[in-house]
Simulated assay, not measured.
Amino acid sequence: MLRDLLAEEGLDDVEIDRETTFHDDLELESIDLVTLAGSLREHYGEKVNVALFVADLELDEIIALTVGQLVDYVTESLRAAS
């Protein structure tokens, strides 16, 4: 899903790992995170609510959010729902 979003932004060749940040490394805006959150919710349903996850973060934590943190949240949400 992230690769699809990045392709739309013309960033389909960017290297991504757990430490990659959405803001500094991928230069994604908040609307891009909303789009990604919508894709995750559409795919996984109510089990994964990125909006609630981000709502608990401070602004500097949102800016520093990494791919790994989001992956961990999704994984934990799916485990908790099963």
Rank of each mutant, 00 (worst) to 15 (best):
M1W: 10
M1Y: 11
L2A: 05
L2H: 15
R3H: 13
R3I: 11
R3A: 14
D4G: 06
L5M: 10
L6S: 10
A7R: 08
A7M: 05
E8D: 14
G10D: 05
G10A: 08
G10M: 06
L11K: 11
D12L: 10
D13E: 14
V14F: 04
I16K: 09
D17A: 02
D17C: 05
D17Y: 01
T20N: 03
T20L: 10
T21G: 10
H23S: 15
D24L: 14
D24W: 11
D25N: 11
L26V: 01
L26Q: 08
E27P: 15
E27R: 15
E29K: 01
S30R: 12
S30V: 10
S30D: 12
I31L: 08
V34E: 03
V34Q: 03
V34I: 11
T35W: 10
T35D: 14
L36W: 10
A37H: 02
A37V: 02
A37W: 09
G38W: 03
G38H: 10
G38T: 01
S39W: 09
S39D: 13
L40E: 01
L40W: 12
L40T: 00
R41C: 11
E42D: 11
H43K: 15
H43N: 06
H43D: 00
Y44L: 03
Y44T: 03
G45H: 04
G45P: 02
G45I: 07
G45Y: 10
E46Q: 05
E46C: 01
N49V: 11
N49Q: 10
N49R: 00
N49M: 07
V50R: 01
V50T: 00
V50H: 00
A51S: 13
A51K: 04
A51Q: 08
L52F: 06
L52R: 14
F53T: 07
V54C: 00
V54P: 04
L57G: 05
L59T: 02
D60T: 12
D60S: 13
D60W: 12
E61W: 06
I62W: 05
I62E: 01
I62T: 05
I63G: 00
A64G: 08
L65D: 00
V67I: 13
V67A: 04
V67G: 02
G68W: 03
G68T: 13
Q69I: 05
L70E: 01
V71P: 01
V71L: 06
V71E: 14
D72F: 13
D72G: 14
V74R: 00
V74I: 09
V74H: 04
T75L: 09
E76L: 02
S77L: 01
S77G: 03
L78A: 06
R79V: 15
A80K: 06
A80Q: 15
A80E: 15
A80R: 09
